[in-house]
C-alpha cells in the first residue's frame, strides 16, 4: 500500500488518497490522470492493465486500485 501511495502522490500531490473514496465519481481524477497512473502501475508492478479495466470502480479509491493490481498480478 505504501508503494501505491507514493505512486499516487507523485501523479497528484494535491489529493488526499487516504480519505477520498470517489476519486473518479467526484471528478478528482480525470481520464488523463488515470492514463498516467496506468503507465506507472504497469511499470511498478509488472502488470498489463487492459482497456476493460478502465472503469470508475477500479479507480475510485486507493483500496480499489490496489485490488485491481492484486487481481492482475494473480492472473
Amino acid at each position: 500500500m505504501e508503494e501505491l501511495m507514493a505512486i499516487l502522490e507523485e501523479i497528484r500531490p494535491d489529493v488526499d488518497f487516504e480519505t477520498e473514496k470517489f476519486l473518479v465519481k467526484d471528478g478528482i481524477l480525470d481520464s488523463f490522470d488515470i492514463i498516467s497512473l496506468v503507465g506507472a502501475l504497469n511499470e511498478e508492478y509488472d502488470i498489463e492493465i487492459q482497456p476493460v479495466d478502465l472503469v470508475p470502480e477500479n479507480f475510485n479509491s486507493a483500496e480499489a486500485i490496489l485490488a485491481l493490481v492484486t487481481r492482475l498480478q494473480d492472473e
Partner: peptide, 14 residues
Amino acid sequence: NYIFNPIAISKLFL
C-alpha cells in the same frame, strides 16, 4: 472507451 483508452495505454504509447 474504444479509441482513446486503448491507444493511450498501449505498450507503444506508454
